[in-house]
Amino acid sequence: MRKLASLSVILALCGGAFYAVSAAEKAAEPAKEAAAAKTPLECFESRKGASELTQRDVKPDWPNVKCSPTTGAALWYGDPYDGTVPMGKMPGLDIAEGKAVVKPRTEKLALMPMCGVSCHNGVGPAFNPPKLPKDKKPAPVPTMEAMVPDLANFQHGRGRIWCMDCHHTTKRNMLVDHFGDPVSFDQPQLLCGKCHGDKLRDWRDGIHGKRIGEFVSTGKKRWFTCTECHNPHNVQDGARNKGFIQVQPEPSPQLPRGMANADHEKLHPIPH
């Protein structure tokens, strides 16, 4: 009996030592793999070209965003309010001060500082009063089309609306509401809601569009404005694809052990 007991103690000690060694090996392995896979530092949010985030640590071991190594899309938000400003007043929305924030669009639009100053500055004979085509058909301006390629493929309204229905006549770095008053590019919902009232109503209630941050109705949220997801100039581009511009998907799930490919999924599933 005593012999057995001493044997078991020896065995147990050996087991303990082995356990420690294997644990150390386990820890070393994943570190190597992670070093090999490098993630991009800048990622786009909803659609490419609309808004980007640069990855940085907001706290130790806590990035503001994680980017997809495959597609470069934002995959995870550590700080949902990164780079946001207060949303401003919105008719029909009663939100406490500071509880609604948006990402400013003005910073993103590269032409913004120029368009109201260099060309459409409201100075000169053409602007007083502004001479606009009576038939509201935009005359193609090569310089303009070169700067904003979307204009050559302008689809919004399918020919029933033109530039000045959305852009302010004299203040070209602003949008325009029903009364002819300027609207900031940061609040496109005030403009879009003019026609798309049903979407505006759903957006106000959080059904249409996207909000991130705190989900309770009194919580602080970052609202995604219309133009962060939709390109207003060629909205119909993806009509056949549910209205969305196509994006590259993230990688597919792992195949189970022993399955070479997933071709069986493409076969007709219903035998007869």
């Binding site: 909803s46 659609r47 899309a73 959080g206 996207k210 909000r211 941050g213 705190e214 989900f215 997801c229």
Partner: peptide, 17 residues
């Protein structure tokens, strides 16, 4: 009170919580 991770990244705003 934070939204789930999947809600926050959905690029088309299909997910609601």
């Amino acid at each position: 009170n934070r939204y789930p991770a999947c809600v926050e990244v959905c690029p088309v705003g299909a997910r609601k919580f």
